[in-house]
Amino acid sequence: MSDAVLSAQAVRKSYASGDATLEVLRGVDLEVQAGESVSIRGESGSGKSTLMNLLAGLDAPDSGTIAWGGSPDTGARRRAAYLGMIFQSFYLVPELDAYENVLLARRILGRVDADARLRARELVSAVGLSGRAHHLPAQLSGGERQRIAIARALMNRPGLVLADEPTGNLDERTGNAVVELLLGLCASAGTALVLVTHNAAHAAKARRSLLMTAGVLGPPA
């Protein structure tokens, strides 16, 4: 029996573009094992973000199947429990402080208890921001916001984290630190990671690297 936390088979997706149809994904196959880190690189418009949306269950493929931990249920409720997501633009809720933003992932999943509060504090500390836990996102730098987003992604102890260009809005030094932190935290928690990035150096840090070219996913040349 496969130990895959994520399995995508023959996934196709196309969009209407005027009278024409734009085929963005042309039969993508991907399997990610528990605790494994996989990087996906590719040019802009190659279909990386579309693939991430499909893998996250935010959009449906035209054909093909996607399963999390062997189950085809990719609904909102399961997503909250099984998946952590990190975006290029951080997407923190501006009215909540750093700690509350981390805790938000658990609130959406259900009741917040003392254990959840403790875990949120530990994660804020693990990303090196314990001194800024009660700062609003507007009071944090880009790197600090992305660290909070990483902590939020790990809050519910997900089996898989999907990170879509998490360093896209950061300078190189900060980006390197964020990727190191993300890989380290996922590795220590045994959480699988799919990292979409333009940065070859960041991609090389993952256990397995893939290249997306014109909607087809494969090993780098």
Partner: peptide, 15 residues
């Protein structure tokens, strides 16, 4: 985008 984030984190439309 925050509304999108809430959906991505598992929030249902009714919520």
């Amino acid at each position: 985008r925050e509304i999108g984030l809430l959906g991505a984190l598992g929030g249902r439309p009714i919520q």
